[in-house]
Design a protein around this nucleic acid. Sequence first.
DNA 1: TTAAACCCTATAGATTTAGTAGATTAATAA
DNA 2: TTATTAATCTACTAAATCTATAGGGTTTAA
Lengths: 137, 137
Amino acid sequence: MLSKKTKYGIKALTYLARLEDKTPVQIATISKSENISLKFLESILLTLKKNGFLASKKGKGGGYYLLKEPNEIQMTDVMRILEGPISMIPCVSLNFYEKCEDCPDENACAVHKLMAEVRDSSLQIFRNTTLADLCNC
Amino acid sequence: MLSKKTKYGIKALTYLARLEDKTPVQIATISKSENISLKFLESILLTLKKNGFLASKKGKGGGYYLLKEPNEIQMTDVMRILEGPISMIPCVSLNFYEKCEDCPDENACAVHKLMAEVRDSSLQIFRNTTLADLCNC
DNA sequence: TTAAACCCTATAGATTTAGTAGATTAATAA
DNA sequence: TTATTAATCTACTAAATCTATAGGGTTTAA
């Protein structure tokens, strides 16, 4: 299951990407527009900021704004930061690899084989989709 | 993330599918061979039985055995029963559809669009993969 | 009598999804 | 310059749910 964190994060990013100008937008504005719990959104935007997607301005007239161009933001990166591994199982993960304790031989493992295929196809979609692609719905 | 339930379920199914004859296999045998907690495996095999993949024989000399041929067991069915929806989000699920409360228009939703693509590609893999395909690793 | 599946319940731990309270920073009005 | 206000930031807490087992008793068949 996709976490609400990721869902809300993507929604917030597309909200910002759809705007004409790049003046800061308050958390509360996005929160109301997208029906997202304000404090939860706050923490999500913070992690997006820490990972270089967004920047913020404090104080009166402050808010968040996109740092990169929408077509430069790949979904692989967004997913990995908000959701974690693309793979459904650590033993096929490229960025978060971990060996299964119970599995003596990965090459003989049916689950490994199946999940590697799923990872490949998901990865291809996330790589070929940018924030810009998601904006024109 | 793939649950251990699904992982163990698939491993147990492949274990049975790889056998020459169809004599019942005890839970404990599979449990030891695949390093799966016995009681957990018990409940997994039970749900696989209730859903028509396995049959069991009680008492001495009893155990579990495959009901269908491995090439008749699609991964879509196994995944839906053990893991639940193929989709990462209910609003794109074919079998477990649910509307998002926060989302006024699915067609304008970036998350919906992205996750629909992911579902399609995953579904294609699970449909085209049977238990027989996973056995020859 | 024994060995196996079956059934029911409980539970520790992790994760998710927030909520609460206050600190910090910056623009603006007095 | 000072006070006020509006915004982000930080830290702690908490409820709810899910996961992965463990335990113990029941039923069935060789």
